[in-house]
Amino acid sequence: MQAEIERAGIATASITLLPEITRKVRPPRALAVPYRLGFPLGEANAPELQRAILKALLAIVHREDVPYVGEYV
């Protein structure tokens, strides 16, 4: 899905909880987060953390060294 959107001329970035799989699938840009499945934005009712993760995700959208997998720490 991500590749199809990117191919249509819209820049994309995804969160990944399973970077080992993401490296196989090779979407254009992904940010690996250190959380469990079901918690891509970290924690429920944690707006500050969720905003910080979104900002980190937005920060990789300009990257052109695709496929890129970054890490949120």
């Binding site: 899905m1 991500q2 199809e4 959107i5 249509a8 001329g9 819209i10 820049a11 994309t12 970035a13 995804s14 969160i15 990944t16 909880l17 979407p27 499945l37 079901g38 891509p40 934005l41 979104l54 995700l57 937005l58 959208v61």
Partner: peptide, 22 residues
């Protein structure tokens, strides 16, 4: 599904799509 999703994003002139799995 992907072409329809792309159609929506294009019609709305979206610049950036953020994909979030669970």
């Amino acid at each position: 599904t992907a072409p329809e999703v792309v159609g929506i994003l294009r019609d709305d002139e979206v610049d950036v799509a953020l994909l979030v799995p669970v």
